[in-house]
Simulated assay, not measured.
Amino acid sequence: MLSSTADSLYWLGRYMERAGNNARGLQVTLRMASLTGAVDRRDNAWRALLTASGCAPGFAETGAEMSQANVVRYLAADATNGSSILSCIEAARSNARRVRTALTTDMWEAVNETWSEGRRTTEATFTPDNLPAFLDWVKSRTILFNGAYADTMLRDEAWSFVRLGTMFERADNTARVLDVHHHALAGTEEGGAVAYVQWQAILRSVSALRAYQWVYHSRLDPERIAELLILRPELPRSMIACYARIEETLDGIAALHGGRRGECHRLAGEMHARLRFGRIEDIMKGGLHEFLTATINRNLELGKQIQEFYLQA
């Protein structure tokens, strides 16, 4: 497979996953803002969302006021923001067009129809009354895409690079969501209703609230939330589940290339092993923020190594 083809497939997976992650983040933050009375707390919720999505520097450059309307517009539809939902859909479709013959009909239709419907959005789409329906639509379209490639692609190189991009983006998102809320999980913020809303928000951001209740059968507890999202392999969006799939996928690609391996394989194995043999007690004791920051930095390095080893011509 040409490196340019692998690159397009990898970024197709990443952009579709990113669109869904941003939709979840916006849904959760809208809910938090409506339940949080103090203005400064609402502003902090929107600021945290920008940080988790990696869009805080770009938003700051716009000079716009930190408000719900401005952040929603920037994360949902701003063409100057390469990570906005509509920008992600546009980029995903562009990558899909480049590798059209490598995709199944169901995959192409999922991406192309999403792009076509996305182009019909207007300013009214992002008003408070219409925004929830738009975000639900984005989530359903990304789930449709994930199902299309999971159910219809041959388990070959093309599938491997789409899956690699999806899992890489998902792992990064989970780590960032946890990191921006690490104070709520580390017990350094006030308790009570505000903390409980934040704990729910963390779980909802990765569609894991019901999973928590199923696994623990108890009230929300910050250490258990961290354990679920970091170390429980049965949760599809947990960090350990994502890195297990990243390592497995990279191993599969290596096998197709006669066993040729690079630094990306070592890093993926190291990151998975760190989680596999980790204990939540040790993570919390050593500092949740420090652990997550180190993971995010290692993830950036892993992405760089994947790019250099497989995706550059």
Rank of each mutant, 00 (worst) to 15 (best):
D172R: 10
D172C: 05
D172E: 15
T174K: 03
T174V: 15
T174S: 14
T174A: 12
A175T: 12
A175C: 13
R176Y: 08
R176T: 08
V177D: 04
V177P: 04
V177G: 03
V177E: 04
D179R: 15
D179W: 09
D179N: 15
D179I: 11
D179T: 11
D179F: 12
V180T: 13
H181W: 04
H181S: 10
H181I: 01
H181A: 14
H182V: 14
H182W: 11
A184V: 09
L185G: 09
L185I: 13
L185D: 09
G187V: 09
G187C: 07
G187I: 10
T188I: 13
T188P: 08
E189T: 15
G191A: 15
G192K: 08
A193H: 09
V194C: 01
V194N: 03
V194A: 13
V194I: 13
V194R: 10
A195E: 12
A195H: 02
V197E: 07
Q198Y: 10
W199M: 09
Q200A: 01
Q200F: 00
L203Y: 03
L203A: 05
L203I: 09
V206H: 03
V206S: 07
S207P: 02
S207C: 09
S207N: 14
L209W: 01
A211P: 01
A211M: 13
Y212H: 06
Y212R: 04
Q213N: 04
Q213T: 12
Q213M: 10
V215P: 00
V215R: 11
V215D: 00
V215L: 08
Y216W: 05
Y216L: 02
H217L: 05
H217Q: 07
S218T: 14
S218G: 06
S218A: 15
S218C: 07
L220T: 04
L220K: 05
D221F: 04
D221L: 05
P222I: 11
E223P: 00
R224M: 11
I225N: 07
I225Q: 06
A226V: 08
A226H: 05
E227I: 03
E227F: 03
L228R: 01
L229G: 03
L229M: 14
L229P: 07
I230H: 00
I230P: 00
I230E: 00
L231R: 06
L231H: 06
P233I: 05
P233A: 08
P233F: 02
E234K: 10
L235P: 02
L235Q: 10
P236R: 09
P236D: 11
R237D: 11
M239K: 00
M239P: 01
